[in-house]
């Protein structure tokens, strides 16, 4: 029997199984801010030396930002500066940035992390206040303008923060921290009207 199974596999009956994202569909709305889980997206962790950024930017179709706490967005694809040789690339348009990087010969590391991260949207006049319930960074528009991005912390979890609008943020965290982060932001949003 083992022998039979050991034969080379050919076609497989069930090509698809159900995708079950963490927290799917969860949202809360308080007076100050709305907190909602965002749909799945394609993501890569991109690492590269300075010399490779031009080639990678070209392949990705978005110019990799070189300044701390910044991001760049083009055609549904956002590159967030996380460190001097590190970017988080998020594609919400259904295209695969990993495949785009695979064609680049310049020195780099691209690792797929689409399922590692969960995105939570925080929007509303109290969005910054909700996040500041556990995040120690200055989120005023002067210090953290639209497009600003940073890895930081929320309570006892690490998050990546991207300001998408004056009153809107995208909060990314690892999958298993998403319940904690979502709950924290929900609590924060309850008190975000002041």
């Amino acid at each position: 029997m083992a022998k039979a199974a050991a034969k080379k596999t050919t076609s497989v009956a069930s090509p698809s199984v159900e995708r079950r994202p963490a927290l799917a569909g969860r949202s809360t709305a308080a007076t100050g801010a709305k907190v909602e889980v965002l749909p799945p997206a394609e993501r890569i962790s991109l690492r590269a030396p300075e010399a490779s950024t031009a080639a990678l930017s070209k392949a990705l179709g978005v110019t990799l930002p070189k300044k701390s706490k910044t991001s760049a967005t083009k055609a549904g694809r956002t590159a967030l500066w996380l460190g001097p040789d590190e970017w988080l690339v998020i594609d919400e348009a259904g295209n695969d940035p990993l495949a785009d990087c695979a064609a680049v010969s310049a020195l780099h590391s691209a690792v797929g992390i689409s399922h590692r991260n969960i995105a939570i949207g925080v929007t509303g006049a109290g969005a910054a206040a909700a996040i500041n319930s556990g995040c120690p960074q200055d989120l005023s528009l002067d210090a953290f303008p639209v497009g600003a991005a940073s890895r930081t912390i929320l309570g006892k979890a690490e998050i990546v923060l991207l300001r998408t609008a004056a009153d809107g943020f995208r909060v990314e965290c690892w999958r298993s921290f998403s319940d904690y982060v979502f709950t924290f932001l929900s609590e924060g949003s309850r008190d975000a009207a002041v």
Partner: peptide, 22 residues
């Protein structure tokens, strides 16, 4: 060389035992 944590990218199912391959 670069390091990326992929702990949470992959769910891991160990299938162990004489019938595992089957």
């Amino acid at each position: 060389v670069w390091l990326t944590s992929i702990t949470e990218q992959w769910a891991v199912i160990a299938v162990q035992g004489p019938k595992s391959r089957d």
